[in-house]
Design a protein around this nucleic acid. Structure first.
Lengths: 328, 328
DNA sequence: GCTTGCTATGTTAACGATAACTGATACGAA
DNA sequence: TTCGTATCAGTTATCGTTAACATAGCAAGC
């Protein structure tokens, strides 16, 4: 920077003003400075700037380990939105998404002088960790639930699950079973509760709810037991698309045809769902929207220097394909 | 830091020495300093440290947009390895993986004073961008090809593709077709070339090679044409698992049974592949290993303050499942 | 002609850490 | 005893940038 200043015949303060555009600089002076920057291929040093201003134009994201489709899509949208606003993103993968894990990850990010934090909080335990942080840093939580303090972006799991369940009932199924996701994930719990609520509202018996872990394998194993034990199952709402794929296989092995003998609705709408045999009726979640909105909330909070507080909810809609039919 | 020093009754320099452990400090002094750090919940400021030392303990990763399984797994492994070595990771998603896009992304990271760079270079065009950078910063490229200067980690696409093709020939198929991936990706090109080489080495005719774009949709559409036009196809090696899923559907619609009438081998071994109907024989790639090794190469280079130069190749093995059988 | 106020620039002192040097004490060998 | 050499801690300057204040020039208003 000193070199640039010397070459342009000004003080380094003027160079700083040209870069930041926050104070008047005469047009011809600005030109000279810009020319000097160009000629010397000058890159401002962000460490020095962060030290002087106390702001790093860097945001932290606490992610979790699994390479699932949803969080990955959200991550990319976060990164892109941040970049367009001139921020960079530092990612830390929490070992475990409990209070301890979130705290460790966030500490590491705080040491990096991040200006704000996006925390992916699918587990209930993770929320406590997030709350503890919001005191001295703007924090937005993602995929959590909306009943906490501070800002968050969630997908309307309940609406999606309600629609899925109602769809199956509306085409004539007497009741709907549910293969659930791990119940320490908000998303899984919300889906299960909404499913239960729909059945309860219609005075239907609520069948036993096997609990899986998002993997196709768990869908397969739970599905095999379910179909072996209960010959009367005609409709299953599955917690996500991978588990639905596992259930497909269990049904196939049991000689049960989808959708003729068994209707299945998934959740997520992964890109492959349209090519499962048969193409899967599922609930689409706009993961990218979640990323964009969470970053916007965070940028607002960082800009205004106040904790973020707003909640935004992304809708979730059923995509009708070929895995659902009236019961025979 | 000054507060910590005051509380412990020492100078800030002594606190620095305790933190970095690079100079002798008497045991009881160290204890006092550690106690003060603990009591004040002291967090070292990385911006100041970066400014003073010229090293940020931060590494950059240039990723690409698509939320594919492989790159995501690699990313997580990179992040984890970096964290264990005390480094953080800044991610930038390149808009386009061409020379321009890589350059922009890397410039942004360089301004962040990163100590080194991992560049995911699946496109041929991206390599040129990477080469331009290696001059003043340790760079490791991933998923590129090995015939360039500098360090890289790749998966042995050729070996994997060769094994897949040979497997199909060895169980009696007269020839093997190939549904290829986009030919501007090294991985896709390597797989196609290895397939062609195997056939050529046995003096077999080399069938036309439809080219897709990694998606299930492209696998479906190409598969439909292929099966309609060529009644004699008995074995297909597909560029990745998603495309294989698309081909499954095309076969199913055409009344062709897998594996009885048609054997299929995929590539990647995504977690769902074992639950495709039928479970997919495919080539497993250890994406996490790629991430770990690339980070190790980079950390070596950063530590020794010299450009990275070594190449490492991760093997790729066939996982035998139920989508392959002798021709009937 | 003198104040007032604006524009454009320079000067100085931080920001929070470390590098390089200096000083004090202790200990062993000659 | 004296010197050399560790060992431990303090002092000072520095990294590259910006905040805060100072200054100079000039136009407008009375």
């Amino acid at each position: 920077m000193a070199d640039v200043a010397a070459r342009a015949g000004v003080s380094s303060m003027t160079v700083s003003r040209v870069i930041n555009g926050n104070a008047p600089v005469r047009a011809d002076t600005r030109e000279r400075v810009l020319a000097a920057m160009e000629a010397l291929d000058y890159q401002p040093n962000t460490a020095a700037r962060a030290l002087a201003t106390g702001r790093s134009r860097r945001l932290g994201v606490v992610a979790h380990k699994e390479a699932l489709y949803g969080p990955t899509s959200t991550m990319h949208a976060i990164e892109e939105t941040a970049r367009q606003a001139g921020y960079t993103v530092a990612v830390v993968t929490a070992e475990a998404l409990d209070v301890e894990g979130i705290r460790d990850a966030a500490d590491q990010l705080r040491r990096q002088t991040v200006d704000g934090l996006v925390i992916m909080t699918p587990h209930s335990a993770a929320v406590a960790g997030a709350e503890a942080l919001a005191v001295d840093l703007p924090v937005v939580t993602v995929h959590g639930h909306t009943e906490r303090e501070g800002a968050s972006v969630t997908i309307d799991q309940r609406a999606g699950a309600r629609r899925a369940t109602e769809l199956l009932l509306s085409i004539g199924h007497r009741t709907v079973w549910h293969l659930a996701g791990p119940q320490d994930w908000f998303e899984a719990r919300d889906r299960a509760e909404a499913w239960r609520d729909v059945l309860a509202a219609r005075d239907l018996d609520i069948p036993a709810m096997p609990v899986g872990n998002w993997t196709a394998r768990s869908g397969y194993e739970l599905g095999r037991e379910l179909l072996a034990d209960h010959a009367d199952v005609t409709a299953v709402f599955v917690a996500n698309d991978q588990m639905a794929l596992g259930l497909y296989r269990a049904a196939h092995e049991a000689g049960i045809s989808v959708p003729r003998d068994l209707s299945i609705v998934g959740f997520d709408d992964v890109p492959e769902a349209a090519y499962y045999p048969p193409p899967l009726t599922t609930v689409r979640q706009d993961f990218a929207q979640v990323g964009r909105w969470s970053m916007q909330l965070l940028l607002d909070a960082v800009g205004n220097d106040e904790p973020a507080t707003r909640h935004r909810v992304v809708d979730a809609d059923v995509v009708l394909r070929d895995s659902t039919a009236r019961p025979s």
